[in-house]
Structures are given as structure tokens and as C-alpha cells.
């Protein structure tokens, strides 16, 4: 047991250089880290992204991959608008609503035509993209910030799809539907915060 633990911890030593003087590009790491953490630190983003993945998994093929492909493609359009400073009204309301609507769709295990599902996801993707995009120009390294938030968003979808695998287990579907309810409630909470 101890050996296994040691074997797992040894690679961590690789991350312990005192000084690394061979770098010439500055702020790439900081920009990437901030961008990567941006969707993860906003619970409203996390809830909606997980819901996209779970809903895709509930709908099955091809929605399981079409929705996570649609989201970043459309999110990029919102992100571009945000980067260029184009205004989009009620972005935060859209983000909170996305958690409510997507959470409810998961809770109700709602099966709708693929094209309609894509439209639902796309509308909310614009809001999420715009919110991230407005932060980009202020980042230490805007380029790697943008790559970081795209990657984190994609990984949250993947986590949602992985959670969707619970469908195959006994009572897994009920657990997922309950999770959808929790996501929707989280969205309602964020909506109320905006109204206050």
C-alpha cells in the first residue's frame, strides 16, 4: 500500500523546481490558469455545463456528442462579441436561466427533437460565451485565457456526460433527475440574486 502511495506521489516531485530559467514567453501559464478557472469558479456556469452533458447523455446518440459540439461552436460567437465589446442585454439572467431550463429538462428527462435541443443549447451558449469573452481582454495573457476557458467548459461537458453514465445503473435515472432538479434550483437561486 505504502509503495503504491509512494509511486503515485513521486511524479509530484517533478513539479518542484526552485528556478526554471529557460522560459522566454511570459504570462502564458497565468493567463491559461485564470481562463481555465473562470468557468469552474462560477457555480452558475458549472451547473449549466454539467446539465448540457447530462441532458446529452439522457437523450443518447447523436445528442450525446452533438450538444457538446454545438455548445463551444456557438459559445465562440458569444465570446467574440464579448471580446469585441458588443453589448448583449441580460447576460447574467441568461446564464441563470440556462441552469433553470437545462436543469428542468434533465429533471423531466425531456426528449425533444435534436434540432430543437441544439437551439436551446445554442441560445444559452451565447450568454456563457459573452460572459467569458468580456473578461478576456483584461487577462494577463488574453490568448491563453481564451484557450483555458474553452478547455474548462469542454471538460465540464465531459464531466456531465460521465455523470450521464449513471443512467445505466439501478436508480441511476432517478439520481440524475434529482440532480437536474438541484441544478434548476441553483439557477433559481442565481435568478433571485439578480432580482435583489
Amino acid at each position: 500500500m505504502f509503495r503504491v502511495l509512494l509511486l503515485l506521489l513521486l511524479p509530484l516531485l517533478l513539479f518542484s523546481p526552485l528556478l526554471a530559467q529557460a522560459h522566454e514567453v511570459t504570462d502564458m501559464g497565468r493567463g491559461f490558469t485564470t481562463g481555465f478557472m473562470h468557468p469552474l469558479l462560477g457555480l452558475d456556469h458549472v451547473l449549466a455545463m454539467l446539465a448540457v452533458g447530462i441532458w446529452g447523455a439522457q437523450l443518447g446518440r447523436p445528442a450525446i456528442w452533438v450538444l457538446p459540439v454545438t455548445f463551444p461552436l456557438v459559445m465562440a460567437a458569444g465570446g467574440v462579441a464579448g471580446v469585441l465589446g458588443l453589448p448583449l442585454p441580460a447576460v447574467e439572467v441568461g446564464i441563470a436561466l440556462s441552469a433553470v431550463v437545462l436543469g428542468l429538462l434533465v429533471a423531466m428527462r425531456k426528449e425533444i427533437p435534436l434540432a430543437a435541443a441544439m437551439v436551446v443549447v445554442a441560445v444559452f451558449a451565447v450568454c456563457h460565451g459573452h460572459a467569458h469573452g468580456t473578461e478576456v481582454p483584461h487577462a494577463a495573457n488574453p490568448g491563453t485565457f481564451a484557450l483555458g476557458f474553452v478547455l474548462a467548459t469542454g471538460l465540464l461537458h465531459t464531466a456531465g456526460i460521465a455523470l450521464g453514465a449513471l443512467n445505466a445503473l439501478d436508480r441511476g435515472m432517478q439520481v440524475l433527475r434529482a440532480g437536474g432538479g438541484v441544478i434548476a434550483l441553483g439557477g433559481v437561486y442565481y435568478l433571485l440574486l439578480l432580482v435583489r
Binding site: 450525446i64 456528442w65 457538446p68 459540439v69 454545438t70 455548445f71 463551444p72 461552436l73 459559445m75 465562440a76 460567437a77 465570446g79 467574440v80 471580446v83 469585441l84 465589446g85 469573452g133 478576456v136 481582454p137 488574453p142 490568448g143 481564451a146 484557450l147 474553452v150 478547455l151 467548459t153 469542454g154 461537458h157 465531459t158
Partner: peptide, 24 residues
Amino acid sequence: AIGMRVLASWVVAGSAMLLALRWA
């Protein structure tokens, strides 16, 4: 095969963002 298509959509998104930054 699915993962590659999803990853490719992230690349499209990332490229679009980097392009937009050139005019930001």
C-alpha cells in the same frame, strides 16, 4: 471518434476567440 469531434469543436471555439482578440 466522438471525443475527436468534440475536441475539434473546442479548437474552432479557441481559434475564433484568438482571432477576435486581434481586433479587440
